[in-house]
Amino acid sequence: MKRNTAGKVLLLIALSSIASLAAITFFIFKEGLPLIFKVGIINFLTGKEWSPSGGEFGILPMILSSVWITLGALVIGVPTGISCAVFLAEIIGDKTRLLASIPSVVYGFIGVVILVPFIRETFGGPGFSLLAGSIILGIMILPTIISISTDSLKAVPDSFREASISMGATRWQTTIFITLRAARTGILASVILGMGRAIGETMAVIMVAGNALNIPHSPLDPIRPLTSNIALEMGYATGDHQKALFATGVILFIFIMILNVTATYISRLGLKTDSLSKGQNK
């Protein structure tokens, strides 16, 4: 009897969290879609001018900024993160998850105080740039990549390593060709989760990326990703301007959905090939 009630209460709580998620989705689309149709979906996605008070709603620069800053973060975060994970799992024990608990505003602050002046003095330009944003995001996604990759490396059975070493492979060859290969699904999942964090991060990016509206042509150009656009202008926006920010949210939402679906698909694909190769080995 008692157990039954507890189960029901838990179910209710779980459902309410799903319901609020559904409500958020519904609300974003309800507020954003009418404006997208009013402006025209092609104009909205490919327009280069964003000037809500002048009636121009083009978010191409922000879409490109989001893509570039996410790629930049991956270029910096993935090699570092995976190397770190290999070091932690294969060479010493795991001791670092501290980075994950640092609030993003602190990363942003470090970026503004140290990174931005450094870039300005070393490479020129304003310092607030795609490069600064990518480096900060690259560091921010490290905990995600490191912890999940470490776990999946540790999950590789020792028999794999032993077999490889007994065949005469060095430790380096074993790590690169056997352990990393065996753990690739988990590592891929960590990269995609990191990507999700990078594309959705707002606070730290607003602080270091400069938020200019042009399409970036070099890593030293200031950029404004989709998230920053919403957070920057929400406070003062009314009418169509506010609707346009919701519409930006719709695009961001779709972006992240595509990312998630791809991630699930890839990791399923990975699992399939894994089991296939295992089957052949028998």
Partner: peptide, 11 residues
């Protein structure tokens, strides 16, 4: 005149 798109923006 419009403020340039390449200006830095802060909130």
């Amino acid at each position: 005149e419009r403020i340039s798109n390449s200006a830095l923006v802060q909130d």
